[in-house]
Simulated assay, not measured.
Amino acid sequence: MRNGSLLAALTVTSCLALSPALAQDADVGAELYTDYCAACHGVSGKGDGDMANVMTIPSPNLTLLSKNNDGEFPMLKVIHIIDGRTGLRAHGGPMPVFGRLFTSDGMGPENPYGSVLEVRGRVLSVALYLESLQE
């Protein structure tokens, strides 16, 4: 019985320890989204950003990603779009238009935006934020 109580306590503690990290990721993601994505995709993610009027290809409503994917958020696809692996044409070439902020091969003078892990953290934070916007 004692081992069961200890296991339960460790499980609860682990869950509580993860909660601030997830909240922080969402906060970081929200800030990155506002700074780099909202101009085209809109503050609310509905594709109505200030730049949407001048774009030749309509900016998608990012709040419908889950709905358009049988109710499941397409996390891997979203990550690949953000980090440029899909080369989405609407962005004038590889996404994002912000260069190496969301892509990285390593640190050094040729890459002032940080390590691969930092960049992947940014991408994941934005993806987690977009997941939170789903209708």
Rank of each mutant, 00 (worst) to 15 (best):
R2T: 10
R2K: 15
R2A: 14
N3K: 15
G4E: 14
L6I: 15
L6R: 13
L10Q: 07
T11Y: 05
T11S: 13
V12E: 01
V12Y: 01
V12F: 14
T13S: 12
C15D: 02
L16Y: 05
L16R: 06
A17V: 08
P20Y: 09
D25W: 02
D25A: 11
D25I: 01
D25F: 01
D25S: 10
A26H: 07
A26L: 14
A26I: 14
A30T: 07
A30K: 13
E31G: 07
D35T: 11
Y36Q: 09
C37M: 10
A38Q: 08
A39C: 02
A39Y: 08
H41E: 07
H41T: 09
G42P: 02
V43D: 11
V43A: 11
S44E: 13
G45M: 09
G45N: 04
K46C: 00
G47D: 02
D48R: 08
G49N: 03
D50W: 08
D50E: 12
M51R: 14
M51N: 11
A52C: 02
N53M: 07
N53T: 04
V54L: 06
V54D: 10
V54N: 10
M55S: 11
M55Q: 08
M55N: 07
T56H: 04
I57M: 09
S59I: 00
P60E: 04
P60Y: 00
P60R: 06
N61A: 02
L62W: 00
L64G: 00
K67P: 00
K67V: 03
N68S: 15
N69W: 06
G71K: 10
G71V: 04
G71S: 09
M75G: 05
K77H: 04
V78W: 00
I79L: 15
I79D: 04
I81L: 02
I81T: 06
G84K: 01
R85H: 11
G87F: 02
G87K: 09
G87C: 06
L88H: 14
R89L: 12
A90S: 06
A90K: 08
A90L: 11
H91I: 04
H91Q: 10
G92S: 03
G93N: 10
P94F: 04
M95P: 00
P96Y: 01
V97T: 06
V97E: 10
G99I: 09
R100N: 12
L101C: 04
T103P: 02
S104T: 12
D105G: 12
D105W: 05
M107V: 14
M107E: 15
G108F: 06
P109Y: 05
E110V: 05
E110Y: 03
E110M: 11
E110N: 10
N111T: 02
P112L: 07
P112C: 03
P112G: 13
Y113M: 12
G114L: 11
L117I: 12
L117F: 10
E118L: 15
E118G: 13
V119N: 05
L124D: 06
S125N: 13
S125V: 04
S125Q: 03
A127M: 08
L128N: 11
L128P: 00
Y129R: 01
Y129K: 05
Y129S: 00
E131N: 14
S132D: 05
S132I: 09
L133V: 03
L133H: 06
Q134F: 06
Q134T: 11
E135L: 13
